[in-house]
Design a protein around this nucleic acid. Structure first.
Length: 697
RNA sequence: GCCAGCUUAGCUCAGCGGUAGAGCAACGGUUUUGUAAACCGUGGGUCGUCGGUUCAAUCCCGACAGCUGGCUCCA
């Protein structure tokens, strides 16, 4: 497909308009970004030396390194990396100067047309009129580029860069455009910094929740029998889920939430009413159609027959009327009766009221369609969110302003049909537990409720030692009202102003992201950073001013009129799947005592009966206090038992030998912290119970 | 969904056009121990699935499935 000039490519624009970097912003690019940007050019230089017919797209620096997109019939594979890196080192060695030049638009166009660089031509078109069109050249390689760059290719060190992976990327990220091959690499000031980065990557890999999850027996996927993206929580992982839910339930109870329970599916009408079907259909599992019971079917068939008969009759009448009209429009016939000296005008002047007939026909048609539909049976959808069910709970009883705010909480399982390529361990799944609640309130109550929700986030984050976080405030795009966003310009403005005010007044660290809101209202996503600095979007908090009205939800206000409540959707722990995935990486599997799947293990030195009895009594005592405790009473050497317990990441090990038995002591050892010495049994037990109760870090 | 890579015992991985191997785990013994691994033995695999090439396929080719990485941080 490359060098195919005959058909003028007509590329789609990007999915959403990303703001171009201004030249000022570019000039501020730091040294590392410049270096990486230049390294991207060096890589492109090398690729063109090896594959001269490659078509170029763009090669920007990124937070992790850089990439360059190519169109090329040769498929890059990691086997090519050594060759490309070798050529890159050659370019570095040549120490070429990065030279900037300015071309006119016509010159630039002619330049790329001569080379058949169709993607570059498209990029050229993106440059606004009046902005300088700059080129950078190093050696034989010339690229449309706003810079900035380092001075010479030699500024990049031969051991300071590395190719990382090859991936595909749509031109401008739009799936309607051709796919390009993207080569990823990274570069650092020198070899040492690169090596440090590589080490950090390895640490991240060691902490990967999928790896630790398998090692510790937390969860499993069974694509063959259960399905991709559907996690099975093993006993040890289920502990994490339960502890999280316990934490959330306690916090919510104290904050005045009430708990509800709803089914995992609902009729089509639910999601038609909520508006999820038009806006969200692709993310939902396809509908289930329920066949009718035999009696229902017979009745439905009979109803259908009746409706059909009625319809047929009406239709016939309409036809007859049409025929009559045609007849009527014929010339009038006049008959003379010469005997009686009279004339009869043969003509029916009574036209049926055709408007009435037409209306009847339409009504009958609708009835027929309904009857046909009934015969099909009901359509059910697995719920992709809990809110519609909660709205129906709101609607289940008459509500007064005295009932508000009403905070309905449920850890309902939702099902989302994520694209197969989007699935990623626990982080992106198809069955998920939302730490969900919906707060119905009046506009007056909104600020206080919204604040309380934010405070709950912070409370939770403190428990997990997350001090780095940021809230992303997503707003709507006025240009996409009625398409991506419900068409309520006034309400959008009001609620967005309201949210913005709360954020500013409470001094929360936030950024505003245009065009990313939910379809029913503005949204806040909470990003957190794990101990190794990886970013996760954990919690979400959305304002909904649209859907309660669609469900006709009202409360009786003080002035005896019915009003529609506002609704806040919130999930401070997001989905339990993702949150646990995050925690696994955050703690590297070394959970604090209150979360640890196996909190305590008693290890006996030898298996003499008195020692075994002592160990069993400790197990019994702690187990009766709901501590997750096991015992290793085997005859293995104590070193081996410890090694096993350490490997299993058991939080607290209680080593019991003859000495301890005699003194009524327990020798405590903490996972990855080593022996803590022997203490009186009562003291050890009390400390364990306190640490769990306090959710000590 | 699309592109690329991967799929060998429960796990981590070797291997080769001539019907498979190690370590750990499991199981059975022996061992009686003080803070990260005592010793001996046993079992375990349609080499992801389905087709094709071949005298012969785990290996070569194709399709499918699953997993992994990526799919604008815009010249």
């Amino acid at each position: 497909m490359q060098n195919d000039e005959s058909s003028q490519p007509n590329f789609e624009n990007a999915k959403s308009e990303v703001q171009r970097k201004t030249l000022d912003q570019r000039a501020q690019m730091d040294d590392l970004m410049r270096l990486r940007h230049s390294c991207a050019h060096i890589m492109a230089t090398a690729v063109l030396r090896l594959w001269p017919d490659a078509l170029l797209d763009i090669g920007p620096p990124t937070e992790e390194g850089f990439y360059y997109d190519f169109d090329l019939s040769h498929r890059f594979s990691p086997d090519d990396f050594a060759k490309i890196e070798e050529t890159m080192r050659q370019v570095v060695k040549e120490n070429q100067v990065f030279e900037k030049s300015i071309k006119t638009r016509d010159e630039a166009r002619a330049f790329f047309e001569a080379k058949g660089q169709k993607f570059k031509l498209e990029r050229l078109g993106d440059i606004p009129e009046g902005e300088a069109i700059s080129f950078y050249q190093n050696g034989e390689f010339v690229d449309l580029c706003a810079g900035p760059h380092v001075m010479r290719t030699g500024n990049v060190k031969p051991g300071g860069f590395k190719l990382l992976k090859v991936a595909s990327a749509y031109f401008r990220g739009n799936e309607k455009n051709p796919q390009l091959q993207r080569l990823y690499g990274t570069a650092f000031k020198n070899k040492e910094e690169l090596e440090n980065w590589v080490k950090l990557q390895e640490e991240a890999k060691r902490r990967d929740h999928r790896k630790i999850g398998a090692e510790m027996g937390l969860f499993a996927f069974d694509a063959e029998y259960v399905g991709p993206g559907l996690a099975l929580w093993l006993p040890k992982g289920a502990v994490l889920v339960e502890e999280l839910e316990k934490l959330a339930k306690e916090t919510e109870f104290q904050a005045g939430y009430v708990r509800v329970k709803t089914p995992h599916l609902a009729k089509e009408k639910m999601y038609k009413t909520s508006g999820h079907l038009p806006y969200y259909a692709e993310s939902m599992f396809p509908a289930m159609e329920l066949p009718l019971e035999p009696e229902q079917k017979t009745k439905a068939e009979r109803d259908l027959a009746v409706a059909q008969a009625k319809y047929d009759k009406l239709e016939k009448q309409v036809k007859a009327t049409d025929e009559f009209k045609a007849e009527a429009e014929k010339p009038v016939r006049i008959q003379f009766d010469s005997q009686n000296q009279t004339a009869t005008i043969e003509r029916n002047l009574e036209f049926p009221i055709s408007e009435q007939l037409a209306a009847d026909l339409i009504e009958s048609e609708e009835l027929l369609a309904k009857a046909e539909n009934r015969l099909k049976g009901d359509r059910y959808y697995l719920k992709a969110m809990n809110c519609p069910h909660h709205h129906r709970i709101f609607a289940a009883e008459p509500r007064s302003y005295r009932d508000l705010p009403l905070r309905l909480a449920e850890y309902g399982t939702c099902y989302r049909y994520e694209q197969s390529g989007e699935l990623f361990g626990l982080m992106r799944v198809r069955a998920l537990n939302m730490n969900d609640a919906h707060i119905y309130c009046t506009a007056d109550q909104f600020a206080a409720e919204f604040n309380a929700v934010n405070e709950m986030y912070l409370k939770h984050f403190k428990v997990f030692g997350l001090d780095r976080y940021q809230m992303r405030f997503s707003t709507h795009d006025p240009a996409r009202l009625g398409d991506k966003f419900v068409n309520e310009p006034e309400l959008w403005k009001q609620t967005e102003d309201m949210v913005r005010r709360v954020l500013i007044e409470s001094g929360i660290n936030y950024v505003e992201v245009p065009n990313e809101a939910a379809f029913y209202g503005p949204k806040i996503d909470v990003q957190v950073w794990s101990t190794i600095g990886r970013e996760f979007t954990i919690a979400t908090n959305q304002v909904d001013f649209a859907v309660p009205a669609r469900f006709g939800l009202t409360y009786r206000d003080r002035d005896n009129t019915d009003k529609t409540p506002l609704c806040i959707h919130r999930a401070p722990l997001g989905t339990h799947e993702r949150f646990i995935g995050f925690l696994i990486e955050h703690y590297a599997g070394n959970f604090p005592l209150w979360l640890a799947p196996e909190q305590v293990r008693v290890l006996t030195i030898g298996d003499d009966q008195p020692i075994v009895d002592y160990a069993k009594s400790i197990v019994q005592e702690l187990r009766s206090q709901f501590v997750r405790i096991e015992a290793d009473l085997s005859t293995n050497p104590i070193k081996a038992k410890i090694a096993e317990a350490e490997k299993a990441k058991v939080h607290t090990m209680l080593v019991i030998g003859g000495r301890d038995l005699e003194a009524g002591n327990i020798s405590v050892r903490l996972h990855s912290k080593g022996p803590q010495g022997a203490k009186a049994k009562a003291e050890v037990v009390a400390d364990i119970l306190a640490a769990i109760k306090e959710r000590r870090a």
